[in-house]
Structure formats: structure tokens, C-alpha cells
């Protein structure tokens, strides 16, 4: 497989990998680094790629593991506090300012969820993946995924309605 073929292979899901990394690492730069890291690792696996049923699932699992490792290491822990202050300037630039504001609430609320719930919400609500795929990537059974998802969605709702009522951003 040459570089061009490999890029064609990863193109459909490289944004997905990036978004998942960003969900966990929060900062865009770190997420970009993580994406590079994962895809380069995948490139070196090149010869064995045919053995996998779904390369996308492999990439997602690698991303999850890589990001969780990053979070565990002290470096990422220190970086996270700094980067929490930044908001995403790119997303929804053309949309109404008001919408953008409320979306940022949702994003911030999601940042406070436990890592596992972040991952599940990311994959289900944003990437629109089937429960089967999610449970394979996370190594959990489907009902556990559903329970965690329900808990996460309710937590988002709860915090949202609070902000709605008191007008705290």
C-alpha cells in the first residue's frame, strides 16, 4: 500500500478521529497531534491492515487509548487547565451568535462529563454510530453503553436547564 492509497483509506474517518481526540483532550492542537500520532501508527501497521474487519474501528480504539494515556500523563493534565479557557472559534462560524453561545454551553457541559461518557456521547450523538460499533470500540457491552449514554444525556439536560433558568453561562 502506498501513501496515496493509505490516505484514501483513512480520509473517510480522519475527521472522526480528530473530533474524538478533541472531545477528550479539549485543545485543538493536542487533538491534531493525537490524530497524527494515531494515523502514523496505523501507517506503520500497513501490512497487517487487511487482517482487521474495520480499520475505522481500529483507529477509533487506538485514538481512545492514546488520548486516555495522554490524559493520565502529567503533561496533559497541566495542559488541560490552560486549554479549558479557549473556546472553539471555528465551529459554526456562519451561524447565529446566539446559537453559538448556547452550543458552547453544551460543549462546556460535555467537558465536565467523565471520559467514558464523553466518548459515548461523542460517538453516538455526534458521529451517529450504532451501539454495536461503540461497544466494540470501548470493549463494553451494549447495555452498559446505553446506561452510560442515558446518564450522560440526562446530565447534559440537567445542567442545561439550570443554566437556562438562572442564566449562568
Amino acid at each position: 500500500m502506498n501513501q496515496k492509497e493509505f490516505m484514501q483509506l483513512v480520509n473517510p474517518f480522519k475527521d472522526k478521529v480528530f473530533r474524538m481526540a478533541k472531545r477528550l483532550l479539549v485543545s485543538t492542537e493536542e487533538a491534531e497531534d493525537a490524530t497524527q500520532e494515531v494515523l502514523v501508527k496505523l501507517w506503520y501497521k500497513n501490512d497487517n491492515l487487511d487482517e482487521y474487519k474495520s480499520i475505522e474501528a481500529v483507529a477509533m480504539t487506538m485514538t481512545k487509548n492514546y488520548c486516555l494515556d495522554q490524559l493520565k500523563s502529567k503533561r496533559a493534565g497541566n495542559m488541560r487547565i490552560v486549554h479549558n479557557n479557549f473556546t472553539d472559534r471555528e465551529a459554526g462560524l456562519q451561524k447565529q451568535v446566539e446559537d453559538k453561545d448556547t452550543w458552547q454551553w453544551v460543549e462546556r457541559i460535555m467537558n465536565d462529563l467523565p471520559e467514558q461518557q464523553k466518548l459515548i456521547v461523542q460517538m453516538r450523538d455526534i458521529e451517529e454510530m450504532e451501539f454495536e460499533e461503540i461497544s466494540a470500540i470501548l470493549g463494553m457491552n451494549e447495555s452498559a453503553v446505553r446506561t452510560a449514554l442515558s446518564r450522560a444525556r440526562k446530565a447534559i439536560r440537567e445542567t442545561m436547564t439550570k443554566t437556562h433558568h438562572y442564566g449562568i453561562g
Binding site: E32, E90, A91, E107, I156
Partner: peptide, 16 residues
């Protein structure tokens, strides 16, 4: 906002 965010968050792209 919840559903709005979920729908738009998918459009962020990897530029690296």
C-alpha cells in the same frame, strides 16, 4: 441547543 450542538459538532475537520 443540545440537538443543535450535536448536529453541528460533526462538521469540524482535521486540518493538520
Amino acid at each position: 441547543p443540545i440537538f443543535g450542538y450535536m448536529a453541528q459538532a460533526k462538521h469540524e475537520q482535521f486540518t493538520g
